[in-house]
Simulated assay, not measured.
Amino acid sequence: MAEAAPKYELIANDLRQKILEKAYETNEQLPQEAALCKAYNASRITIRKAMDILVNEGLIYKRRGSGSYVKDITENQTAGQTRSLEVVEGNDITTEIIDFAVIASPEVVTEKLKISSFDFVYDIRRVRKKAGVPVAVEQSYMPIQTVQGMRLDVLSQSIYTYMENELGLIPQSTHRLIRAVYAGKKAGKLLDVDEKHPVLEIEQTVYLNDGRPFEYSLIRLKSEEYELQNIVVV
Rank of each mutant, 00 (worst) to 15 (best):
S68H: 15
T26L: 03
F120Y: 14
I219V: 15
L54Q: 00
A39E: 07
E89G: 10
K22V: 04
E25C: 02
C37P: 01
I97P: 04
E107A: 14
G211S: 03
R151A: 09
K130V: 09
I144Y: 07
A5Q: 04
L59C: 01
T110F: 06
V88Q: 10
Y141I: 06
S140Y: 02
P134M: 02
E96K: 11
F100W: 03
T146E: 13
D92Q: 15
P143D: 06
V199Y: 05
S173K: 14
R179K: 15
V193H: 00
E215Y: 10
S116L: 02
E215H: 08
V133E: 14
T74L: 05
V127F: 07
M150W: 03
F100H: 07
E201C: 08
Y182F: 12
T146M: 13
S84F: 06
P6L: 02
N76V: 03
L221Q: 12
L155A: 08
R16V: 02
I45V: 14
L169Y: 06
E107N: 11
G132R: 06
Y182W: 13
E138R: 01
K62L: 03
Q32V: 10
H197W: 01
E215M: 14
I202R: 07
V55C: 04
G149R: 07
L152Y: 12
Q32H: 12
D153G: 09
K129S: 11
L85W: 13
A187K: 04
L30G: 01
E166M: 09
A34W: 03
